[in-house]
Simulated assay, not measured.
Amino acid sequence: MAEITYHGYYRYTDIIFEWPKHLPDDQLQPLRAFLNAEALTDVDCPLRLPGADGLELFIGEWPNGHKRFLLSSKQLEFIRYYLYQSGMVDVLISLPSFAYLIHADEMKAVEPIILRDQLSLRRVLRDLDKSNKRIKKGTPESRMTDVQRELEEIRGRWDTAKKGGGGVFLAVDFESWEMDHSIVTEWGYAGVRWVPMKDGSGGVEEMREEGHLIAEDYKRYRNGKYVPNNTDYYRFGTSERIRTLPLFRSALKDLVEKWSSFSSEEGGGPLYLIFHDTTSDLSYLSLSSIDISTMQINLLSPSHLPSPPKPSEGPAKKVFALDTKGMYESVIKTAGTKTEKRSLETMVADLGFEEAEKFHNAGNDAHWTLSAFVKMVEVGKGGKVVLTFTE
């Protein structure tokens, strides 16, 4: 199978501390030796570009002013192939989870930086840490307002769609093989939209649809070491086993196109794709042969939400991504707790869905992602979501 690569960046700290946690001991030591600060900045480091006066890494700046030290995904690809070709490891080291991949459009800017020695590396890390701490101590009230404003905007879009004003909502989730996250073994979806009632009353009725698809070509790739293997435990219908990878991938593309057509037909609003962790799931969309740029997916961020379509403009053509992780951060801030962002399983429990089970099945996870989304938007503007924390 040809590997599809989705390029982006990884935080230096995630590469140093998180990536090694998921590797066996025989791969761990060679990787740590390569990533050692002294080795990275050595004049003979193979990551150095020919003729460069040092090692080129990157600094990414987020819209809130925070800056992070980054390596590119191409550099990680080089590292894993270098370790393999040099005989330091017997097999290619698996890439970090897509949960750690950062897309360029998530950041305000990405700038290269040349590190000439170990001292310069440590100096950059120190200066970034000081800068980020100053920003963190700055205006917590305004940061809280940003995330809460985003949730209120999403609630307004939901209310408009429920009244027949346009917009359809589709939650999508993916499961990949824990040893190689480019191998997507299953995906699931759960969607909600509103259509005109046939009685001529002018009202609308809610329509829901959900499903779970499994790639038969990948049935030998089973999880169980790091995450549960719940592929066969879909709770909301019958799983559909797709015989070939091309059909498996085209089915997802067909689904998104179908729901895009719904959005054009039913009020002219956008298609809102709902994920729990937008970064990794958008990468999985790309792995499933969906051209994100052609689909015009825009990530929602505070103060950058799309304006509703005007009647004179016709149907909206864009697809927007909503992240329940970010929404839940707003809910937590409104509740006055310092609880950090949580996994889907814990978030769903906090929102009171005691019957939820068999997570890490893509169909179940899509169902609960949509359920959590609805719970967070249905309270009405200015309302609070009732939480039952599972500390």
Rank of each mutant, 00 (worst) to 15 (best):
N230A: 09
T13D: 15
K333W: 12
E257W: 10
W368A: 06
G268M: 09
G380H: 13
M107H: 02
P140I: 07
H367S: 03
V385D: 10
L287Y: 14
F236E: 08
S97W: 02
D281H: 10
P196D: 06
P20G: 06
L31W: 01
L71H: 10
F174L: 11
E150A: 13
D146Q: 11
I15A: 00
L351R: 06
D42K: 13
K310Q: 15
K318D: 13
P24E: 07
R243A: 14
F320L: 07
R80I: 10
A52T: 06
L95N: 04
K133N: 11
V43P: 00
R48Y: 13
I214T: 05
Y84F: 12
G51N: 09
A316T: 07
E206Y: 05
F174W: 06
R32S: 05
G8F: 01
V124F: 01
N298I: 11
R193N: 04
S312Y: 15
Q148K: 01
M376G: 02
D44H: 10
V172P: 00
L151H: 08
S176N: 04
L70Q: 00
V385H: 07
R241Q: 09
Y100A: 15
G191H: 07
I102W: 01
K136L: 15
R157G: 07
E205P: 03
S283M: 03
E205K: 11
A190E: 15
I214K: 03
F275P: 13
Q27T: 00
P96H: 08
R220C: 02
T388C: 01
M376P: 04
F34H: 05
L23R: 01
G188I: 02
Y226W: 12
E313I: 05
L70D: 00
R149F: 06
A316G: 05
S72K: 12
K310V: 14
R149N: 12
L35C: 02
E205H: 10
Y221D: 02
P270G: 09
V124G: 01
L282T: 10
A2R: 13
E178G: 03
L271N: 11
A33E: 12
I4H: 08
I15W: 00
E38M: 10
Y81W: 04
R249L: 11
